[in-house]
Computed example of a mutant assay.
Amino acid sequence: MIKEDKALTLEIVAGIGIFTGVAMVLALFISPRPAVFAGLILGMVMSLAMFLSMAAVLKLCLKTQSKKFTAVFSVTSSMTRYMIMFAVLLVVIKRYSDLFDPIALVVGIFGVKAGAFLQPVIHRMINRKK
């Protein structure tokens, strides 16, 4: 990875972490149960895995010269990510809802979106300090 890719990746990962931290602080006041915190952490892990998978697929698609491969590979990778996410959510709801709160899990998964939205803010904060 080039330097800019690493910085961008770390900024989005930091955004996911910040989002999860804020969600945990809010959970302290709304519903301070261990299952909620476990759901948020599992959601954060899933959003980190989804983001890193997306970054790897994007990097591979940029390197290849075949438009057909890029289209097919990016779609199949995206569908695989969502199917895995849906399967984990179903397993948590069906078997482990006493350990992991399903709503907190979904909120934690939204960390991937929040990380992308927070990246420019984090980037400006880091560059201001330099």
Rank of each mutant, 00 (worst) to 15 (best):
K94S: 12
F100P: 04
L90D: 12
A56T: 08
K59C: 11
R33E: 13
S78L: 13
F73S: 08
K59M: 13
I84G: 09
L105G: 00
M83N: 05
V106N: 01
D101A: 05
S47W: 02
R95C: 04
A114S: 02
L118R: 10
M85A: 15
M46F: 00
T80F: 14
V107S: 00
I109M: 15
D98N: 11
G115A: 09
L99Q: 15
V107G: 01
R81C: 08
T76Q: 15
F37M: 06
L60S: 09
I84C: 13
V36Y: 07
K67L: 14
P34R: 14
A49N: 03
S77P: 04
K59L: 14
T70K: 15
T70S: 15
D98G: 09
V106F: 01
K68D: 09
M50L: 10
V45C: 04
L62R: 13
I41D: 03
I93Q: 00
A56D: 05
A55E: 11
L58D: 05
C61N: 07
K67C: 12
K113N: 08
M54N: 00
S66T: 03
A71E: 12
I109A: 13
I41Y: 09
V75S: 07
L58E: 02
K67W: 11
T80H: 07
M79F: 15
T64P: 02
V91F: 10
K67A: 15
L105F: 01
R81V: 04
L58Y: 06
L52K: 13
K67P: 07
K59Y: 12
A116K: 08
Y96W: 15
M46K: 01
V72N: 05
S78A: 12
M79Q: 12
F51D: 00
V92F: 03
V106M: 00
L62A: 12
V72S: 06
P34F: 12
S78G: 14
V112T: 13
F117R: 06
G43N: 03
L99A: 15
M50A: 10
A38C: 08
A104G: 02
L99K: 15
T70W: 10
S97V: 03
V112L: 13
A35H: 07
I93R: 05
F110Y: 11
D98W: 12
M46A: 06
I84L: 15
L118V: 06
M54C: 01
M46P: 04
S74M: 03
A104Y: 02
M44F: 11
F117W: 11
S66R: 10
T76K: 15
M46D: 03
P102S: 00
L42S: 03
I109T: 12
R95M: 10
K63S: 11
K59E: 14
A104S: 08
F117S: 07
I41H: 06
K113E: 04
Y96V: 05
A55G: 00
S74P: 01
F69M: 14
L48W: 02
I103K: 14
R95L: 09
L48Y: 03
V36E: 01
L60V: 08
I109C: 14
A49I: 10
L62Y: 10
T76W: 15
A71C: 10
F69C: 09
